[in-house]
Design a protein around this nucleic acid. Structure first.
Lengths: 330, 330
DNA sequence: TTGAAAGCGCTAACAA
DNA sequence: TTGTTAGCGCTTTCAA
């Protein structure tokens, strides 16, 4: 039994109004629960709306109310199967954002920078995930002329509101962890053109120097296991004598570990490896990967709270979130 | 230097028209690249628009064009850190959808069922991820009176377009794999109230029976490692003598393996375990988890293609996608 | 408690 | 090549 839907000529409030013998306005009030309308009227109108399967035209409402109750989230690239745990910004950041937007009855539209430029969605504000290597991202978002917040490095730029983890301290913690194990010849693997990664490297280097040690190598790497694998090979090929590695992400760390092992170095015996993010999977790896945990969930919540505040004319401030050592085996 | 933005009284096409000494219409045409406008006029208009930082009001355009170039994706629950690899529908399904929508210049709004009901976003069509245990989902989406497609079990219901993996065959393959290893006493772990999971169990059972074996136990489980862990304990506590387990997802499989090991059963020696999804992490687990791979990416692409086709008045058909054994150690 | 008027800002359709 | 007219469907504002 196929209940075919005559989707075509949507019924409008005008139609309902005629049928109910009231004005369009009364229909609008009745359906939106305005207490001014007489209960009997409301009931009648609602029943007629129900019968006709009426849905308000959201586009029309958005135009009239000058608000879409929708926030845009600009992500840098499209997630895919192989990358799902290796992206710089994981699902859980989106999860935090979504949680908070949802509980404020806001919708979330996902977009990429090119799409945002080519086909801007109707939104009241924007969350930009990552400053990116190019300043394009921030600039394009600024051009849109609407409120926005950024996930990334808090850089004291008063122009915009930023939320991010304390990457510098994260780097320091990684260094202290390795130093505490007696490691002295440590390398860094990760793409430091990325602002957040640069912060991690900076903190790492500072703490090393503070302890009279130093970073014996820094190799760029994509945010993937494969990237870490290759970077470790480069590191060893260069003849670096290392007993510790700080990887910019857990996926990278896993790749590094795999490469080290293939080259006959045991982890953590010969080389200790610490990652970043506390990605799901880090704990399952063999050996379980020691990591610096970011609170993605709270990050997402903060981003959403701040963009909502901005759309309401408030002036939220940038915020840096603490990170935490997750001690495991590697 | 803070270039504060006077966000307030947005400039409209009317304003530009006055300044350029042309009509609103010409401004609209010029900015949308309509070839009818004289190049010199277009240039003048565009320059003025640029100077004023003009952005079209997308809500107004949406209303007028009766299209939002946006597709809604209804997900069952909010993703979070712990669940990121254990959800029934992972990031990569969204990735496939996003890829396809993006290349058609469509935006994607993520929503949940309650939010969709409470604050419907302005969209031209819907993708529903999962039929859910409650029929609510499908019904709520139908009520919206707009085109939709569903990810899940293709059930011959002509009312809607569905895309999904061939779960029945997936179950058969799992059975054949275990049987080929000489396993005869196999159990199933997973929530069979979920339509797709029920299909997997059905195929599994059929193939077992075909081979003269049978399913010695079926324990429900949430889509998490924790769920699998508990289910395996139940299974053993019930005294089941098993040498094989088919888990409804890889996360569940990992939990099952962990529990079996703690109880002194070795995997795969005493008990072989096969999962489903080929989740990232399955290959990294110890032992690497044998799995049935779903092509999430293609699934997402198909969903997007079909919903776009529907919004254009075409009549796409439901589609079932093949699955594939990923042979590993477990 | 209800209604009438007046747009929100844009673009399809037709006219010039 | 440009302009005029007429809404898209809703809600704000003001009047009754």
């Amino acid at each position: 039994m196929s209940r075919a839907k005559p989707v075509s000529p949507r019924v409008t409030m005008d139609d309902l109004a005629k049928e109910a013998g009231v004005s369009k306005m009364t229909v609008s009030r009745a359906l939106s629960g305005n207490p001014l309308v007489k209960p009997s009227t409301r009931e009648r109108v609602c029943k007629i709306a129900e019968v006709h399967g009426f849905r308000v035209n959201v586009a029309a409402r958005n135009l009239r109310q000058r608000s879409t109750r929708t926030i845009g989230v600009v992500i840098e690239m499209t997630p895919s199967h192989d990358r799902s745990m290796s992206e710089p910004y994981p699902l859980s950041l989106l999860g935090g954002i979504m949680q908070e937007l949802t509980s404020n009855a806001y919708n979330m539209v996902l977009t990429t920078l090119p799409l945002f430029v080519a086909a801007p969605p109707a939104v009241d504000g924007l969350i930009l995930l990552g400053q990116g290597m190019n300043e394009d991202a921030v600039e394009s978002v600024q051009r849109a002329g609407m409120p926005y917040v950024i996930w990334g490095s808090v850089d004291g730029n008063e122009d915009h509101v930023t939320v991010g983890s304390d990457n510098v301290t994260g780097g320091r913690i990684a260094a202290q962890h390795l130093l505490a194990q007696g490691r002295r010849a440590c390398a860094f693997v990760g793409d430091a053109t990325h602002l957040e990664i640069a912060d991690r490297l900076r903190g790492f280097g500072e703490a090393m120097v503070d302890a009279g040690a130093c970073v014996v190598g820094a190799v760029p790497s994509a945010f993937t296991q494969e990237g870490g694998y290759q970077a470790a090979q480069v590191l060893i090929a260069e003849g670096a004598r290392i007993d510790g590695v700080f990887a910019a992400s857990d996926a990278i760390a896993m790749g590094v570990i795999a490469a080290l092992r293939e080259m006959g170095r045991s982890v953590p015996h010969d080389v200790a490896v610490i990652g970043f993010d506390d990605a799901p999977g880090a704990a399952l790896f063999t050996p379980p990967v020691t990591s610096i945990r970011q609170d993605w969930d709270r990050g997402g919540t903060l981003l959403a709270q701040k963009i909502l505040a901005l759309t309401k004319g408030a002036k939220p401030i940038s915020e840096t979130m603490p990170v935490q050592l997750k001690l495991r085996i590697s």
